[in-house]
């Protein structure tokens, strides 16, 4: 027993502590040992709160187990959990992640009274007519005329944006922001995008090239990873 490899390893780094839980150990053993280790370290009174990264390796914790882990580590408020990292995610979560980050190409006309609501990014090849509405949790790209309503980042993603070949929308909505067409008669614009401007705190319409510095991630490595 004594020769057994330690189940819990704690390493100090510049950012705080890293707490490794040996992935081959049983969950019950790990929790037991963790509990002992945490309680064994008697702190000095004026010691600051230490941040901890928990590394699970190839171990998956269910909600109950994660709650228990958090409770043990943060007991007496000596440690703050920065993150719990696992190499594993559930199939369900992976599929949702994939769905949320996928570009869905749809070829149709969204006519008055119709709503096209999708998860992830929407690439619509066709028009959105007045009275029609497109909604996506990610970005919206319209290869056609956008006359109706477009709502990007419908689940709260303020970094989402709306791009269209021709833009003369009734309304643009991004996350919880709404902008509408002016009351006076106006011309639409070609090849532009709607995006939330942080400084003005509202949706602005600008040329597509602003995306290259304001929304770098759309062509970035991480995104391509997401899309597999």
């Amino acid at each position: 027993m004594l020769d057994k490899k330690q189940t819990i390893t704690i390493k100090g780094t510049r950012e705080g502590l890293s707490l490794f839980i040996e992935e081959s150990a049983s969950y019950n053993d790990a929790i037991k040992e963790l509990n002992e280790k945490i309680l064994a370290s008697k702190p000095k009174n004026d010691e600051p709160v230490v941040s901890v990264r928990v590394k699970l390796g190839n171990r998956y914790l269910n909600e109950e187990q994660e709650k228990e882990l958090r409770r043990i580590i943060s007991v007496e408020n000596r440690f703050r959990i920065e993150s719990i990292e696992s190499e594993l995610i559930r199939i369900e979560d992976a599929l949702k992640w994939q769905e949320d980050s996928e570009i869905k190409a749809i070829n149709r006309i969204v006519r008055s009274g119709q709503v096209l609501d999708i998860k992830g990014d929407l690439l619509l090849i066709g028009d959105v007519n007045p009275g029609g509405k497109v909604v996506s949790t990610g970005n919206i790209y319209v290869m056609g005329n956008l006359y109706g309503i477009a709502h990007a980042g419908s689940e709260g993603d303020r970094d989402a944006f709306i791009a269209a070949s021709y833009m003369k929308p009734t309304q643009l909505r991004i996350a919880d922001y709404i902008s509408r067409a002016p009351d006076y008669e106006s011309e639409g614009v070609y090849m532009e995008c709607g995006i939330i401007d942080g400084e003005q705190d509202k949706i602005i319409i600008d040329s597509l090239k602003v995306l290259s510095h304001k929304r770098k991630e759309i062509s970035g490595f991480e995104r391509r990873m997401n899309n597999g």
Binding site: R111, S112, G113, Q114, N129, P130, G131, G132
Partner: peptide, 12 residues
Amino acid sequence: VRDADRIVGLLE
């Protein structure tokens, strides 16, 4: 025209 658009959508 708006109503016609709605109708076309339903007919499709």
